[in-house]
Amino acid sequence: MSTRIVMILSIWFAGLGIAQAQQAETDSMFFAPSKYLLLDKGLQFRITKAINSMYNFDFATAERDYAVLAIQYPNHPLPEFLVALGYWWRIEVDVTNEKYDAVFLKYLDRAIEKAETIFEEDETNKEAAFFLAAGYGFKGRLYSERKSWTKAAWAGKNALKYMDLSRGEEEFNPELLLGDALFNYFSEWIPENYPLMRPVMALFPKGNKELGLQQLEEVANNAFYTRIEAQYFLFRLYASEEKEPFKALQISEYLHTKFPENPYFHRSYARHLYAVGRWTEAVQQSREILERIDAKKTGYESNSGRYAAFYMAQYNERIGNRAEAKKYYLKTLSYGEESESQESGYYLHSLLQLGKLATEEKNKQLAKDYFKKVKKYAKRKHPAHQAARDYIKKNKL
C-alpha cells in the first residue's frame, strides 16, 4: 500500500512549471518585466505557439522554439524543463513504454542542475525552488510508474521540500495551488480506499476532498502555467472517483477541441462519450483514432487502439451486427497483446464476448479457448474470471 502513497505524492508536482497559452495574447506586452522569467508576460506571449504545439503533439515545432529559448536564456532551467515536458506527454500516451525514459530524465536532470545553481546562489529564489519541485516531482512520477520505489520516495521527498520553499511569492499562488489541491483530495481519498494506510496518513495534515476539487477548478479556470494539467486531473477524477461522467466529458471535449492531435485527449473524449451513451459520436471518434493509428500519426498506438476498437465492437454488438462486433473485439485483443495489456478490462471483456458469441454459434471448442484465456489473465476475484467460470459451467464447456 505504501507504493500507492509514493505514487500519489510524486504526481502532485506534475503540473508545475507548465505554461498554458491562453491569456498571453491580450496582455503580454503591457506589463513590466518580472524578476522571475516564468512570470514575464512578454515571454509567455512569445512561447504561446510552442506550448500549444507541444500539447498538440507537434513536438518538432515546439522544440525548435525551445532551442531559441535555450540560446536566449542558457543558464535558466525553463528550456530544458519544457523539452522534458514534451517527452513526458510522449510517455503519458502509454506509460508502459520505456522508450523515452532516458531522454526525459536527461532533460529533467539538466533543468534541475541549472535550478540548483540558481538556488545555491540565492536560497530565497522562489522560481528556482519552483523548478526543483517540478523536476523532482516528475522524476518521482516516472520512477513510481517503473516501480522504482526507493528512487520515487527520494524524488518525492525532494519535491515536497522545494515545494514548501517555493511558497511566499504571491504571483505564483495560482500555480502552486495545484499541489495543494491534489494533496487535499488524495490525503482524504487514500485512507478511505486503503484503510491500512490510515496510520501513515495520520502523519500528514488532514485533507479535504471537496476543497481539493474546488481548488482544482480554480486552477483550471484561473492559472496560466498549470491550467491544462489541472483540467487533466479533473476529468480523470470526475470520470473515476467522483462518478460525474458528464463533467468529465465536458472537460475532455474542450481539451480535444483545443488540441485535436493529442492522442491522450482524443481517446479520453471517445471514452467519455461512450460512458454517457453518446454512441454515434463515440463511434465517430473511435473510427478516427483507428484511422490515425493506421496512418502512424504521432502518439497514436496500440493502447489508444484498444480503447477505440472496444467501443466499435460494443456499438456493433448493440445494433446486432455480429460480424463487425467480432471483428472489433478481435482488434481489441490484437491491440491489447501488442501493448501487453492482457489484464485490462477491455481485453478481458472482449474475450468474454467472443466466447459468448462462439457459444451461440455452437463452436464450443473456440468458446472454451476464449474462456480459458479469461481465467489465465484475470485474477480469481476479478468479475471476468467469475463470469467465465459461470459461463463454462452453465454451458457445459
Score class of each variant (00 low, 15 high):
Ser2Lys: 12
Ser2Ala: 07
Met7Glu: 15
Ile11Gln: 07
Ile18Val: 14
Ala19Val: 05
Met29Ser: 09
Phe30Ser: 01
Thr48Asn: 15
Ile51Gly: 14
Phe57Val: 06
Val68Ile: 14
Leu69Tyr: 01
Ala70Tyr: 00
Leu78Met: 14
Gly86Glu: 10
Trp89Pro: 08
Glu92Asp: 10
Glu92Lys: 09
Val95Ala: 03
Arg110Ser: 15
Ala111Trp: 04
Glu113Tyr: 13
Thr124Glu: 15
Thr124Gln: 10
Asn125His: 13
Glu127Thr: 09
Tyr136Ala: 00
Ser144Val: 11
Glu145Leu: 11
Lys147Tyr: 02
Gly156Glu: 06
Lys157Val: 10
Met163Phe: 13
Glu175Met: 13
Leu178Ser: 02
Leu178Glu: 02
Asp180Val: 06
Phe183Arg: 05
Asn184Gly: 00
Tyr185Val: 05
Pro199Met: 10
Leu203Ser: 08
Gln214Leu: 13
Ala220Ser: 05
Ala220Asn: 05
Asn222Leu: 14
Ala223Leu: 12
Ala223Tyr: 11
Thr226Ser: 15
Glu229Gln: 15
Tyr232Trp: 09
Arg236Asp: 09
Ser240Gln: 15
Glu241Phe: 13
Ser252Asp: 05
Leu255Lys: 04
Leu255Glu: 05
Phe259Arg: 01
Phe259Asn: 01
Ser268Lys: 12
Leu273Glu: 08
Val276Gln: 04
Ala282Pro: 00
Ser286Tyr: 09
Glu291Phe: 11
Asp294Lys: 15
Asp294Val: 11
Gly299Lys: 01
Glu301Gln: 13
Gly305Lys: 03
Gly305Val: 08
Ala309Leu: 04
Gln314Trp: 08
Tyr315Asn: 02
Ile319Lys: 11
Asn321Trp: 04
Asn321Glu: 04
Ala325Leu: 06
Lys327Pro: 02
Thr332His: 11
Glu337Lys: 15
Leu348Lys: 03
Gln353Phe: 06
Lys356Glu: 11
Thr359Cys: 02
Asp369Thr: 11
Lys372Ile: 08
Lys375His: 04
Ala384Ile: 01
Ala388Ser: 02
Arg389Ile: 09
Tyr391Asp: 03
Asn395Val: 01
Lys396Arg: 14
Leu397Asn: 07
